[in-house]
Structures are given as C-alpha cells and as structure tokens.
Design a protein around this nucleic acid. Structure first.
Lengths: 199, 199
DNA sequence: CATCTTTCTTAGCGATCGCTATACAATGAA
DNA sequence: TTCATTGTATAGCGATCGCTAAGAAAGATG
C-alpha cells in the first residue's frame, strides 16, 4: 500500500524535531518560517503541505516535546506518593533543563512568553499545559493528605503552586546558565519545605 | 535658561512609562515601533529624536522600571539581615507581580525571553540584572554565615539560586493568573526552607 | 510509453518590520 | 521682522514577515 504520487523527500519527524529545537530556543514569534525551513532542510511549500501552517507546526512541536524531552512531568506524576512525584519532577527537571543536546530550560514554560496580541492563543496553549501540571500536583498532594500520608491541614494548592514556581524558576536559571549540579541543589532546598519536617 | 527651538510637545517621562508598559506586556521583539508610538501618543520621528531607537528606548524603560516598580529588589536588599532581605523580596514580589496597575510579573525576568539572534544583547542585558540580584542575595547570605547569624556550612550560592528561582517562578505564576494571596503562600512555603529550622 | 497524483523548486504576493528624508510648525535670539 | 534651532506630521524607504501560485519533477498505474 504505497501512497500514490511523488514521495516526500524528507523525514517528517526529523523535520518536526528541527522545528521544535528552533521554537524551543527562540520562542514562537521570534522563530520565522525562513529559519524554520532552513533548520528543517525544506522549502516553505513543503512545510505548509506537511504541517498546515506555522501555528499548527508549533502545536505539533509542543506535542512532540510532551512525548520526548517533556515527558518527565508525566513520568514523575506516575510515582506512587505525592512526595515521590514532586521529588522526581524536581530531580528530572534539574537533569533535563541544562542538558547539552537541546536548548536550555523548559519549552512549555518559555516557548511563548513574549507574544503580540495576534498570538495570544499560542501563549494560552502553553499556559494550559502548565496549569494542568500544577493541578495534577495539587490533586496528588490532596490525595495523600486525605490518605494520611500528609498532615490533614496540608494546603495542597499552595504547595503545588510553590513547586510549580520552583520548577519554572529552574527553567529560567537553566536558560541563564545554571548547571545540573546547581539545579539539583535548588531541588534539595525546595524539598526541605515539604510538610511534616520542621512542623 | 529655556532651550531654544520648538519645545517638545509631549511629556518624555509619561511617554517612557507608556513604552515600559508595552515592553512589559509583550516583550522586546513582540513590541513594534508602531504599537509603541501609538501607546506613547507620538509619531516615529519624535520617538527617534527623544530616545535614539527602539533598542535604546528599551534600555531606558529597564532603568525606569528599576527606579519604580522594580525597586523592591534594592529595597529588600537594604534590610539588615539576609533572612529579612529574602523575606522582604518574596513579600514585595508577591504583592507587586499581580498588581492591577501594570502588566503581571517581573519585567526584568520576562521582558526579553523570546528573542531572535539579532536581539541576543537585549536578553543579555536583562540576564545581567538577574544575575546581579542573585549574586547580591548570595553575598548577603554569605556575610550572615560569616557573622554567625547562619550556620557556618550554609551553602550561600545554592540558597541564593533557590530563592532567585522561586521569585522567577512567582513571576510566571503571576503571568498565569496567580493572585497576591496565592503568591504570599508561595513565599510562606519558600521561607520554611530557610536554614536553621528543621536542621 | 502516457497518465495521474503528489511533492518539489522558484518566485513573489500583500503586510508589516525598524527607521528616516522631507517639509512644515513653533519657539528664542538678533 | 528675520534667522537659527528644534520638534512636528506625512510619507515611504529596503528588508523581512507568513504564506502561496505556478509549473517542473518523481513516483505508481494503465
């Protein structure tokens, strides 16, 4: 069942990875179609035929990120307890953000921060992912508080917002040049704020 | 000593404030000269005569921010102890970032995150401010550790990186819609990580 | 071979980018 | 008045933006 017509002359997934890298390094609006096509090794009509337009290509890049480098969030949330999940998320983020095989930081956090009015929906798309992760952390903490693994009066939303903020700050730190060792120390300190220690 | 020639027909500082607001909300590159002139109530030649170019106007806006809304950092660092300084910075940031009279978040943190290669120097300018603040926090902590106000083995750089990350994460949270109450809770949790408590 | 389908390259669309040449308006000095 | 100086508004520069029309090229099918 070979498709009819002239076969595509490039690897769609490799081109998507190249686009992801560009979007990741410069953000949505600062990445032009010209730089995208150059990085992807194709011409504009090939990009539009394969991905629709710049906007849809970005959404595919986000999905691709979530399935690869960004999967640490879902993997961490699969840990049995909230404490293990948060610790895993901090550890994995500290290892991932400064890794040399991709742009520094988190694509979902910094991929569309500076946008014109025309691209508000792009910023909104990433915000949705961020809020989803924060909510998942909060629910995991609330569940453990209900189950007695954490003090009953644990403020799950506040704790989740705190760890979400730490992770987002780690992304900025990585973009500013922080090493994994430095980020792991940030994770160390952040974990001392976990409830049921000094309390 | 009135200056010769036709007097300027607009308030330079008010125009600068309007430019700051635009840069703050959309970032350096996503803010066009057209939107700037519209917000400032002037035409392009007036902008270029008064501020040089878009790049110089941005630097003036950064300075203006540091002197006004962004002064909380310097004010916090004027506190006598590192503990008071860090607490003040967290409290002031929590109050400032979601305030309704300006765009959410911190201009120095988010004012130039998504940039093309051509504007790397703009991103670098803000990074310099961020690193300066982080270094100032670290030195304040190190001084108190030397003076016995903190354990001798306090890891000042790690603690400073942690609090810098928390503040940067608070900026992202504010941009994502967090209220002051929520950010103050983040500050509460962050302060429980201060050394010499559960240790 | 011819035909059909799809992708390819080339070239360029209208709109916007940062910026400026030009001419006019408004002031102080002579 | 007249001139010099500075700020103003209008209009438009070359470059780049996201995107696409047009036709050649590369495969399957007959």
């Amino acid at each position: 069942m070979t498709p009819r017509g002239r076969p595509r002359g490039f690897d769609r997934e490799a081109a998507l990875d190249a686009a992801l890298t560009e979007f990741w390094r410069h953000g949505y609006e600062a990445t032009s179609v010209a730089t995208l096509t150059k990085a992807m090794g194709i011409n504009p009509p090939s990009l539009y035929a394969a991905f629709g337009d710049k906007r849809k290509l970005f959404s595919e890049a986000v999905q691709r990120y979530a399935d690869t480098h960004g999967s640490y969030g879902a993997r961490a949330l699969a840990e049995p307890t909230a404490r293990e999940a948060v610790e895993a998320m901090l550890r994995l983020a500290a290892a991932e953000y400064p890794a040399a095989d991709h742009p520094p930081g988190c694509f979902v956090i910094d991929g569309a921060t500076n946008t014109t009015e025309a691209s508000q929906d792009v910023a909104e798309e990433l915000r949705g992912y961020r809020e989803g992760t924060k909510k998942a952390i909060a629910e995991k903490i609330a569940a453990d508080a209900r189950d007695g693994l954490l003090p009953k009066d644990t403020d799950a939303p506040a704790l989740a917002t705190f760890y979400a903020a730490v992770i987002q700050g780690m992304s900025t730190q990585a973009r500013d040049g922080a090493t994994e060792a430095e980020l792991q120390r940030v994770a160390d300190v952040a974990l001392t704020a976990w409830p049921g220690r000094g309390a």
